[in-house]
Design a protein around this nucleic acid. Structure first.
Lengths: 181, 181
DNA sequence: GTACGCATGTAAACGGTTACATGATTTG
DNA sequence: CAAATCATGTAACCGTTTACATGCGTAC
């Protein structure tokens, strides 16, 4: 077992299981949605598919509940814990990327159609404002029971959204400017 | 033809072809790398696979060079131009996401291992500083022959990298702080 | 003229998304 | 107790990635 190269999704699952202790896919889903979801989203089916692979790799172990729903509980194996530790100790040689369809549209926008750019900007700004508010609530709710590192990640999310709000707002005001900072 | 739902990659290719006029996959690659690559990266093989699909969809047309290498030149069909225009006119109902493995590592980092966080932060900061410098060069080179919208996208890239540089730097100085802004 | 890097392309395998499906809880 | 929503899971399709392959220019 364990011939394949693990993907970020693999470590995401391993990390979630480590934090939660024995847990179901649904537990992972809940935690992911209220924390790293913003940086690494995925449909919930991944949280069934990936644990199955990790099981085959010997990095997770599974036990089924006896009673009622006989849900599957996953937990880290020693190998799994080691894989996670190795990953943490390895410097990341890649830089992240911002995948934003709104920016794609802006990039390919028709320069002469000022109104379209304005509409796009207004719309994108709205989404970022909404998420910013959500993250602020989240931060208030988490203060205390999250690690400093997790709060830091949240904080960068907030800064990103604030930068985006400013950016789209400036563009809405003056769609032809290059927004020099 | 044209039953499938187009993906962002589809519009990326359509947009590139529109900007370039008749062009090869390699031309697209060059343009993409020096512009939107930072927001939407992909291996070059996508620039062969996707045009093939768009061809089947009737959104691109192809002609082969007569001489020498007989390269494939793609150009927009009227249907392709229309698809692009429709996309531009449709508001984006999704918000972009930041996929950054470094942030994943931070999120799952061992809070007690301050040194590991410091190393991660130093490393991530370095990447963002490097790309920031690259983007600054790019901006200087582009001033004049890029559209305002394209310069704006570049500008947001710069702001993002600057925010990331600050963030990782603060974290390197004080790995236990939550970096409140 | 040979070596190296740029340019061009293809194929297979795998991960991720979409869609479907249904048993359990809660709410009114 | 009916309806809605939460919780849990599977399967197929398709896009993306990885890997391989090789022709063409250019510099030395």
């Amino acid at each position: 077992m364990r011939e394949r190269t693990l993907t970020p999704t693999s470590y995401l699952v391993l990390g979630l299981v480590e934090q939660l202790g024995p847990c179901t896919s649904y537990d992972m889903k809940k935690l992911a949605r209220s924390s790293i979801g913003m940086f690494w989203s995925f449909p919930h089916s991944q949280l069934y598919a990936e644990p199955a692979r990790l099981l085959a790799d010997g990095l997770l172990a599974e036990e089924r509940e006896d009673g009622g729903r006989r849900r599957r509980l996953f937990r880290l194996t020693p190998d799994g814990a080691r894989a996670l530790a190795d990953w943490r100790a390895t410097p990341t040689e890649e830089i992240g990327e911002v995948r934003d369809e709104g920016l794609l549209k802006l990039f390919f926008s028709d320069t002469t159609d000022v109104e379209a750019i304005r509409t796009l900007a207004a719309n994108q700004g709205k989404w970022h404002r909404e998420r910013m508010n959500y993250l602020i609530e989240l931060r208030a709710a988490y203060r205390g029971n999250a690690t400093p590192a997790q709060l830091a990640v949240l904080e960068l999310g907030l800064r990103w959204d604030r930068a985006a709000v400013d950016f789209w707002n400036e563009l809405e005001v003056d769609p032809t400017s290059a927004n020099r900072s």
